[in-house]
């Protein structure tokens, strides 16, 4: 990470769309009167969803909207790396290169972008379609390596899987989020290794009763064996 500043080239103006304005009202209404500044993060996020990145005019508009000094909005926008302060491509791919993903082959995922789109981490394709960013742990280590495109995660990636995903992105197809190897959520690959019995049949309490009985029986047996000896 390095110093985050506003982009040099900025649009002249910004205004929220009607739909977003309605959502902003709802967001602000969540907070007590006079504490509307608490809504700054969700509203910055809305601005980013609308424009793709957080622009200076958007910061001005938000400061005005929430009645807070513009520097306070800038502080928040520069603090969170999730706010893009520079324009990004139409498709913003965030690849996790932290420990778990790296061990599981995030370098291959990045290489797929190098080969297919000729972009490295932090770069945007010349046509402005795809931006590749490096992010810290995305919190999906169990399905590593992982990339995020928009709000969706794409998991269990390999060089091939990522290459196919890039082809789909280029072709403008709707992407199917989730694991590339077809597993559900965070369950193990292949067969289950635990919790194999039907949980409705044996509750943990029943298990305990059985265990207790078995333990007592074994204790009895040991005592008897001792007496016999």
């Amino acid at each position: 990470m390095s110093t985050r500043n506003l982009a040099k080239d900025q649009p002249d103006s910004f205004s929220f769309t009607g739909e977003h304005k309605a959502r902003i009202e709802k967001i602000i209404a969540k907070y007590p009167d006079g504490y509307q500044a608490s809504a700054v993060i969700p509203i910055l996020d809305l601005a980013q969803r609308q424009e793709g990145w957080v622009t200076k005019p958007a910061i001005d508009v938000i400061a005005d909207l929430l009645d807070m000094p513009v520097i306070r909005v800038l502080e928040v926008a520069t603090f969170y790396t999730m706010f893009n302060l520079h324009p990004v491509g139409k498709c913003h791919v965030q690849v996790c290169t932290s420990l778990s993903c790296w061990l599981r082959g995030s370098d291959d995922v990045v290489k797929a972008f190098n080969d297919k789109l000729d972009i490295k981490l932090g770069e945007t394709t010349t046509d402005g379609a795809v931006t590749l960013s490096e992010v810290e742990c995305a919190g999906a280590c169990v399905n590593a390596p992982v990339v995020a495109v928009g709000d969706d995660y794409y998991e269990d990636l390999t060089y091939e899987a990522m290459s196919k995903l890039i082809d789909d992105i280029k072709a403008g197809k709707t992407l199917a989020p989730g694991s590339a190897v077809g597993r559900q959520g965070a369950e193990p690959e292949g067969n289950r290794t635990s919790l194999k019995t039907d949980p409705t049949q044996t509750t943990p309490m029943q298990d305990l009763a059985v265990a207790k009985q078995k333990y007592e029986e074994s204790q009895d047996a040991a005592r008897k064996a001792k007496e016999n000896a």
Binding site: M1, S2, T3, R4, N5, P69, I71, R72, L74, E75, T78, F79
Partner: peptide
């Protein structure tokens, strides 16, 4: 309120 601390951590 004109001065602020932008960025975070070492930055």
């Amino acid at each position: 309120a004109e001065i602020g601390a932008t960025g975070r951590g070492e930055d």
